[in-house]
Design a protein around this nucleic acid. Sequence first.
DNA 1: CTCGTTTATC
DNA 2: GATAAACGAG
Lengths: 257, 257
Amino acid sequence: MLEGKFEEASLLKKVVESIKDSVQLCNFVCSEHGITVQAVDDSRVLLVSLLIGNEVFSDYRCDRNITLGVDLKSFAKIIRCGGNDDYLTLIAEDSPDSVTLVFEDKNSDRISEYSLKLMEIDNEFLKIDDMDYDSVIKMPSIDFQKICRDLSTLSESLQILITKDSIKFMAEGETGNGSVILKPRTDIDKPEQSITVKLNNAVNSTFGLKYIADIVKGTSLSNQIVIKISNRTPALFEYKLQSGYLRFYLAPKFEDE
Amino acid sequence: MLEGKFEEASLLKKVVESIKDSVQLCNFVCSEHGITVQAVDDSRVLLVSLLIGNEVFSDYRCDRNITLGVDLKSFAKIIRCGGNDDYLTLIAEDSPDSVTLVFEDKNSDRISEYSLKLMEIDNEFLKIDDMDYDSVIKMPSIDFQKICRDLSTLSESLQILITKDSIKFMAEGETGNGSVILKPRTDIDKPEQSITVKLNNAVNSTFGLKYIADIVKGTSLSNQIVIKISNRTPALFEYKLQSGYLRFYLAPKFEDE
DNA sequence: CTCGTTTATC
DNA sequence: GATAAACGAG
């Protein structure tokens, strides 16, 4: 039996809205530690990895592992039926054929209850090892979103160059070229505005903006994004939750492509 | 001669926008008491009944009864030509072949004048008797709109169950089921947030969400909606105006359908 | 299906 | 106040 109560329905709403454009069907795997999702996008280029730690919930109980195979578009429709600051409780039996969402208004007695039919979904669960990356940057997620949006008007590719004391985003296209350079900085009053760079090796990687556009949908989940890049292995884009994370793994474009 | 001046053009605009999707052609019947409309939708399932009482107007004069047969789509187009807080004066002769709309900006000297050709429209004016209903509920119109919209993503039918101390809205569909339960409440600070139930008999009625979707277009006319339901007779959905009302009569679906 | 308007959020 | 998502209209 799963019973997980969110203090704010908006958290699950943001999570689902963040990944529903990359992935259509996925399994929510519930264990005592929380809820995880792992899925690849339709083109099998972008890997999405989500962990909602049990500390995110105001109440959480999951006796044994339960897998909820959901259609994210239908799931999103139902989540939109709740108010953003309703309590939201997810309920499922041990071998469920449906999951129940209960929304409770904090100010009145309105209780909305929705059940969603589940699906059997094949999943190839990949064990992803923690690894060392050549460069790790941390920056305001909203700035990363704006840079990517701006540059996507020029090109289909985003080049990221990281050196010890600068981050350069570049796009070159038919109509023109653009670049944005950031310097590391520490903002004491607004730490979420800080930009940090940790460097083992300088990197110069290029990514498809089509996929980056899906990644930045996670912006609302965290003030900051952590980007870990190595030359010639998939990069990691991470939005941290209060407990858990939403991670995207995206392989860079290689020059010979 | 009819001459009716609205303090705000937006009121007539809201009224017309509220019914133009249900009804294409209708007669505006003008008398000394104000303006009334009665019409059925194309499928003859939904009955619309409107009264704009003369107190709604800042100036109103109508010496003898005048019937204005209008095409609501054309009427709506013209009303959109005025500013929302323009004065709007409706003018018609005693046996008119057109109606004139005069918009006056409150802040400048702009005066816009439009005339709309009238049509001869057959109408079967039904005398609707006030009757007692099994249940009468009053609730925030915007909440009713949201509940109906939410549940319409699941099903084509909306079931409403009313008991002494609760109102339950339900929809069952292929992808899942949904229900919303409201409890009566009195909000002293925001009386428009109150929910009341008056019950002679508990009711359990089902309506086509297709028609409900047209009904909730009236939401902007009033903070509250009054819904009067009896088992096995048409239900009444009412948005009250400052003086007058917009009412929809809709027969429930019966189980044998 | 795309556009403009409206609403909610930051 | 500005921006971004949601809704309704063409």
